[in-house]
């Protein structure tokens, strides 16, 4: 009896690691935008939701192959991210930080209701049957393993982009000093737009991975949104490596908490841990 118990616990831990990959990818886009533009997109998870719908409609309704549909979602959400910056963030860039937070909150309301209006409240899924992998007596969903690997690849890709390309270097520079860079002839408006587009694209990528595992419905953003913010803050807002590590910590709380108790308690413990951490290290676990 004891050994079986341990196997299940181990399975929960590994599932937590796999979940951490997806959460880490979710946090990546938000962190990039915060680090560079200094704005928190409260509606970030709603962009992910729209990405999930894009994959669903392209694949299920219009019969586009899954991989192309995913590519489509990345592009669509990337454009949405750039639009969000252009239409909503840019006008309030000079006003108080809290207004920037609230304005994206308005977008959250808008997108969530708009999705309800257009897509209805039913839960939709891709209807893909992905195989289940088993190692010994442990079972993992293929979707989760795939999501984990793609998330890792996305993380590495972003890192290479930021460190190895001219545009990436400019983005890192502007994140370090917003006042000086424009004096050096860098067009910050253009860079912000590009960053928002990339942030959106990462949200789109996360959406592709999530839609493999979860049904999509208009309120799904509220499930992932808060946990994504917690992860970003826990890792130190704007600190991408920190966010990635924090994703794994939080996902372990959810997974192991959910293993011992009911799944809500996993989340309760994760949120409580977040509040406590803020009291002990307000700058985040890996903040400066």
């Amino acid at each position: 009896m004891d050994t079986i118990f341990d196997i299940y616990l181990l399975e929960a831990i590994v599932n937590g690691v796999l979940l951490g990959g997806v959460l880490g990818l979710l946090a990546l886009g938000l962190n990039l935008v915060f680090g560079v533009i200094d704005v928190v997109w409260i509606c970030y998870a709603e962009l992910v939701m729209l990405g999930m719908y894009t994959v669903y409609f392209l694949h299920v309704v219009y019969g586009v192959p899954v991989l192309l549909a995913c590519l489509g979602a990345v592009v669509v959400v990337g454009v949405l991210g750039a639009l969000l910056h252009y239409l909503v963030i840019r006008p309030v860039l000079q006003s108080e930080p809290i207004n920037q937070l609230l304005v994206t909150g308005g977008v959250l309301f808008f997108l969530q209701s708009f999705a309800t209006l257009v897509f209805g409240i039913e839960f939709r899924n891709l209807g893909l049957k992905l195989p289940i992998l088993n190692f010994g007596e442990m079972y993992f969903s293929y979707a989760r393993v795939l999501a984990f690997l793609v998330a890792l690849a996305g993380m590495v890709g972003l890192y290479l982009f930021l460190t190895r390309t001219f545009l990436g270097t400019a983005i890192r520079a502007i994140a370090q000093d917003r006042e000086i860079m424009p004096l050096m002839g860098v067009d910050s408006r253009k860079l912000y737009l590009v960053t928002s587009g990339i942030g959106g694209g990462l949200a789109g990528l996360a959406a592709c991975l999530l839609v493999l595992q979860y049904d999509v419905h208009p309120a799904i953003g509220l499930t992932f949104g808060p946990i994504t913010f917690m992860i970003c803050v826990l890792g130190g807002l704007g600190n991408m490596i920190g966010g990635f590590v924090a994703a794994f910590i939080i996902s372990q709380f959810i997974s192991i908490g959910g293993f011992f108790f009911h799944i809500e308690w996993g989340y309760v413990i994760a949120f409580a841990f977040f509040i406590l951490t803020m009291f002990i290290r307000p700058q985040g676990l890996f903040g400066k």
């Binding site: 937070l101 808060p226 913010f229 917690m230 809500e264 308690w265 309760v268 949120f271 409580a272």
Partner: peptide
């Protein structure tokens, strides 16, 4: 603790957001 540790602005909003999540999920749980 928020007051003592100067958790303000974005951070205050997010800590209180977590508080809401804890209470609502506890009610469900």
């Amino acid at each position: 603790p928020c007051v003592r540790l100067r958790i303000v602005g974005h951070y205050f909003a997010l800590v209180t957001l977590a508080l809401t999540a804890v209470v609502a999920l506890s009610i469900v749980g």
